[in-house]
Amino acid sequence: MAKLFAVTIFVIAILSAIPILRHTWVAPEDISTHGALIDKQMSETMAEAGISFLAAQFVLGFFIWKFSNRPADAKITKFPGGAKGLVIAAFLVVGIEVLALGVFGAKAWANVYFTPPSSDAMPIQAQAGQFAFYFRYPGPDKKFGGIHPEMVNEGTQNIFGLDPEHDVDARDDIVAAEMAVPVNKEIHLLMHAKDVGHSFFVRELRLQQDFVPGLDVTLHFTATKVGKYEIVCTQLCGLGHYNMKAYLNVMPQADFDAWLKQQAGQ
């Protein structure tokens, strides 16, 4: 029974590692300028965690195999390293491991959050509400109209609560249900929550950030590959959470200009 148990542990450990080594299920290809560091950090962490996992399971299995069901007169022996050796090993090996991960990981994090957007980054406002994203472009005047929560009316498609009657800035604002961006252009994303907490997650962009009601947060990124990608909500926001999504449409600059013009004409 003990030997079978040990073998089961070996088999589970190996089977668990196979999909990782074969890259059976992996995140889609990165299309951002900041994502490479995150991906590198991910694979390094995987290597360290994977080795720790396999080593721990194999040693456990091996000891179970070796030291179970021994005769009553078998001599009890002590692991030569003793507890002190183990503690020192844990501090040195795991300590250095996590310190390294922490320091290099901080670099990847800083790359996303501690660099300011460049001055010519294109502002786009994203608004999350139950259960859809909407995006607003400032239009030719480069100014966003003010948000008047009391004027929000999804039935008349005044999604952001704009007041074009009194607010000149709002008149040329372009509101869309998909997020079109020009390729290789830095985007400054202004995130506004209309109601409860939501999140903005684009796997290919290596970007995830919550919308905080009452607190507008910003992000910036550059998409480097033309294509259509899913933006999904990852913060439980109510019954339609599973279907809260939009598309990120990365297009060449010319296509984007045409798209913007067409949206403005509507």
Binding site: G129, F131, E154, G155, I159, G238, G240
Partner: peptide
């Protein structure tokens, strides 16, 4: 009574 679908906010 206004009717809406929160999953498809344009439905009204």
């Amino acid at each position: 009574i206004p009717v809406k679908c929160n999953i498809h906010p344009w439905m009204h």
